[in-house]
Amino acid sequence: MAAGPDDPVAAPGHGAPRVRPAGDAALTVELGDTVDPVVNRRVLEFDRRVRASGLPGLLESVPTYRSLFVQYDPGAVAFDALAAALLALVPDGDVPAEGRRWVFPVCYGGEHGEDLGHVAGTHGLTAEQVVAAHLAAEYRVYMIGFAPGFAYMGGLPELLHTPRRASPRLRIPANSVAIGGVQAGITSIPVPSGWHLLGRTPARMFDLARGDDAFLLAAGDIVRFERIDTATFAALEGADGPVARRVG
């Protein structure tokens, strides 16, 4: 008997994750409904287990802030059976972080970060104070989405929380280091956005020429920034080798 859509399958004892249908060939396993590093860590560990499980009918999984979206072949597995098998893989409680650690060079302000002054003005800070606060923090990639390789990151210091622009820009450049609301991010291709541009990194976040490594960041990665000047930016932007450093 299939669970009705109003009666999502729940597993008591696992922090009540819920499996909800998304049509005939996809479902969502919700581990929470907030932006929370513990929930996100559990999602990423759950995703790792799902991918390693070899469960029949699994086609693709997409980890988000607080849920795992699963595309499946309904010819190979029914919703109820898959839901039960997935719930058995949900980790109990918090799990250790497993992401890679990166340092990204950033050129702040000027033509590379035209909203630096606006953000400083919004908070009664100087541009240098904004840069210092942004540099001091460590950021965690919660998910990749919106555009290929776009990293949604948490960890933005509270004094930099800045409402999005009232009117989004039609196009902001690739590899922009930006903030929006409580979130930080690095863009990967030119996109419309209401986020504020603090600077740019010469690292190419998305580059098909790198093959399977086309995307620099993955969910769970930890990011810090280091400041470079415009001359260094120019030198690194055209560089062949890796520009962002793996430090763990």
Partner: peptide, 11 residues
């Protein structure tokens, strides 16, 4: 509003 999650074809 919800915290962003995955979107299926036909959502």
């Amino acid at each position: 509003n919800i915290v962003s999650d995955g979107i299926a074809l036909g959502s």
